[in-house]
Design a protein around this nucleic acid. Sequence first.
RNA 1: GGCCCGUUGGUCAAGCGGUUAAGACUCCGCCCUCUCACGGCGGCAUCACGAGUUCGAGUCUCGUACGGGUCACCA
Length: 477
Amino acid sequence: MTVRTRFAPSPTGFMHIGNLRTGLYAYLFAKKNNGTFILRIEDTDQERKVEGAVDMIYRTLETAGITYDEGPDKDAGYGPYVQTERMGIYKEYAEKLVELGGAYYCFCTKERLETLVDENGNHTYDKHCRNLSEEEIKKHLDNGDPYVIRQKVPENVVSSYEDMVFGEVSVESKDIEDGVLLKSDGLPTYNFANVVDDHLMGISHVIRGTEYLSSTPKYNLIYDAFGWERPNYMHLMPIMKDAQRKLSKRYGDANFEDFISKGYLPEAIINYIALLGWCPKDNREKLSMEELIESFDIDGLSHSPSIFDETKMRWLNGEYLKAMSPDEFYAKAEPWIEKGIDGKDYDKKEIALLLQTRIDILSDIPEKIAFLNNFKEYDTNMFIHQKMKVDFEVAKKAIDIATDALKDFDDWTEDGIKEQIKACAESAGMKSGQVMFTMRVALTGEPVTPGGAIEMAVVLGKEETLRRLAFSKELIK
RNA sequence: GGCCCGUUGGUCAAGCGGUUAAGACUCCGCCCUCUCACGGCGGCAUCACGAGUUCGAGUCUCGUACGGGUCACCA
């Protein structure tokens, strides 16, 4: 069987993580089965359309590494791939369905429809126009009366199908409404456009959110009425913000681009969301796109919603950062380091080396190195260290030792400085650890730094190192 | 409310009738160590509840509770 899957987002804003995951799974499933992955833009809802949203979809898929084989700009004979460019098609098929007995004209007014509300406030259609005679229909049509075309749901049948994730799903036809297929403005509803497009585009596997799980039998009835082959279905549980709420655009940072600008790597985001609702057979946690394709299987799909946990995504991102070569990491980190040192003349490569194992996301960088261009009065209590046996007296002595050791010293390398400090500490009768601890604080004014005293001295350079030592000495007094 | 779907630690989750109920994140402790981090080792903590089927149930069935979805000329 030729596998053809599709991702059909609506251009109504930025690309939401949950939505992206649906696209990812459709992509993985297609690639796993040597199939074709198709992008279709579902923009029939003109009211919710957002300017620039289509570009956002392209951009997101590209940086996420999800490449479609067919789409608006890659027509393989099934186009157009944008629903508003397919408008003529739907009306034609809706009329065809009427001929086939699977749909009918409905001339009910909005006012009449509004009176049809059940005790729970839900709209229900009473099939008023289902059995209009040929003459009545013709009369309305000739009058130019506005109309919609509704699905003619067969009576007393049970529509069921085998969902690839949930197994058998069935719904009785009495629970299915004669829904609108073609609106009075001549445009199709999602329900209809979706079926027609999926069929015409030869979609073999429909992969989408569970919100469609219970309406799928209704769509199947349309396939049946046309005499079309039904596709296979895979419904996906949503990604949640917490136990009750779906991840929502309103909470701000649930979209792909935001995470990218916060310093997440696209591959880490993809990896993480792939694992939300799916688990590979071997339980691996870090997988590249190729590995995801290789190990993707339906068995691993979850039957229950998953809560999005940014803490874990941070961790995963950190793993990706650590796995990079120093050069790769530097390329990614450089702009953030620049931001942190604010134009000061420090060796950015050296700084990158210190940072690589100490951050989870790139945006952690500026804060971690702020002390480099911001060194002023600090709390001297930092010098007091029980375990190290350092107090103010020891600290002053240690600073003196360090200063003396370095003021005429020129081998400004890690090894060089380290040996020099060690030697001088010992000959002064002090533990090198005490000197280095003190020196680290004296050089940074921070309780926590991305590296020890020696590394800090190397990054700061000789001149700045001596200046800060002197400054700290004064401060302790 | 009707219908549909679901429920394993705080979170992601493995598990497909017999397990000491994996693993990961988080958190805590220890080791390493000039702070932190990395790395290594260890720890806390889970089968929603009740019946049934069975020699045996997280795994099967049925109820209950809880959660989600859906009932539009939105997608």
